[in-house]
Design a protein around this nucleic acid. Structure first.
Lengths: 197, 197
DNA sequence: CACCATACCAAGCAAATGCTTGGTAGGGTG
DNA sequence: CACCCTACCAAGCATTTGCTTGGTATGGTG
């Protein structure tokens, strides 16, 4: 009876979506299992029929998202595009992630430090390192091929780009104001006209 | 017996500095009064000899800091400098704040949303509005006087600058790597070469 | 009909958390 | 010496929090 376009999300997935939104809004530690249960219209204990713990919930939220995102980065890195195009594509893919997976991005940005203190979430630090390598690789390739200014401090530039792109999750609201494509256009313009030689 | 240069901080001030560091590291709600007391070498109850509540502690941390910072912004706005210089000065003052009052900046960046849900912290939203007005005024003056590109989306540019400047508090560590002046130089360079006509 | 899996409720427990209360030690001041 | 102020301790209370346990209702499936 359900529309073919949306394959009837399981109750699990519904609960994960609710949890993701709350984690993003209030932070992981700041969100109680009762908050999640209330939003879902059930009692807090009933969550433990679906999930082992609050931690396993955020696990299931973050891991598939990161797999997709870094898959896209890898694709860009492996492509034949010139350095400038690669950098542009990486920025656009990131803004697309903010549009389509805002809660996941917000959780990763806001709670990675705290979650990282548990061994279970060691992969978050790995992903952070991987992200750094992606951007640094792109910047260095840009400098090497003469697309970017040769006097750029690569580390500072990396931080500049990373911060500028990801922090947008704090204010970007899908459907309001600019589309993510428009925002990406503006940001690329400001960024590259300052960086390109 | 104390050096004349440092006028012997009161116990109150010592405790506030400890609390500020912990609030910045772990977040306001995530920091317990026992955390603060442990770091100070006393019992949690003893904190209530000095302060009314945990909330009043963060109050005393944020208010004087914001008074100083916005005083500096006002001074820049009222100056005779051209728009480009004003914008540069505002960026530099902000990085200086990150250097000298890192914990305060971090708390304002990370916890303003949460704290803002209490009537007591309504002034945080006011300060946010005020900050927006400062940057928008500077950008609009830049566009009007021809120092900045006329096709800039003022709101997006404001967010771009604000995010780029303040998010640096997440990684900047005084005494390690670049000085705040060097970081400001690089950021101004990237920013303005993308913005200036 | 017997059986079973899914999704939930009702009740509560142990730990953590913000804060309170009554008291004590030490140093200055009249 | 009597008095008081500052800084703290010791003990605990009410609430919140993550999670557990045993049970119930519903809808399939043999």
């Amino acid at each position: 009876m359900s529309a073919a376009s949306t394959p009837e999300p399981s109750r699990r997935d519904e609960l994960l979506a609710i949890a993701a939104r709350l984690f993003a809004e209030k932070g992981f530690k700041n969100t109680t299992v009762r908050d999640i249960a209330d939003a879902a219209g059930i009692l807090s204990g009933s969550l433990y029929h679906h999930f082992d713990s609050k931690e396993s919930m955020v696990d299931e939220i973050l891991i598939p998202f990161q797999d997709r995102l870094f898959g896209q980065y890898d694709e860009i890195l492996a492509s034949d595009d010139d350095a400038r195009t690669k950098l542009e594509r990486a920025v656009r893919v990131s803004f697309e992630a903010i549009e389509q997976h805002g809660p996941e991005v917000a959780i990763f940005q806001n709670d990675a430090d705290y979650l990282g203190t548990f061994e279970r979430f060691g992969y978050l630090a790995d992903r952070n390192t991987q992200s750094r390598q992606v951007w640094v690789t792109l910047i260095e390739e840009g400098v090497r091929t003469g697309v970017l200014r040769p006097d750029l401090d690569v580390t500072l530039t990396y931080r500049f780009i990373r911060d500028t792109v990801w922090v947008a999750v704090r204010w970007y609201q899908p459907g309001k104001g600019h589309t993510h494509t428009e925002v990406a256009d503006q940001y690329v313009r400001i960024l590259l006209d300052g960086i390109s030689s």
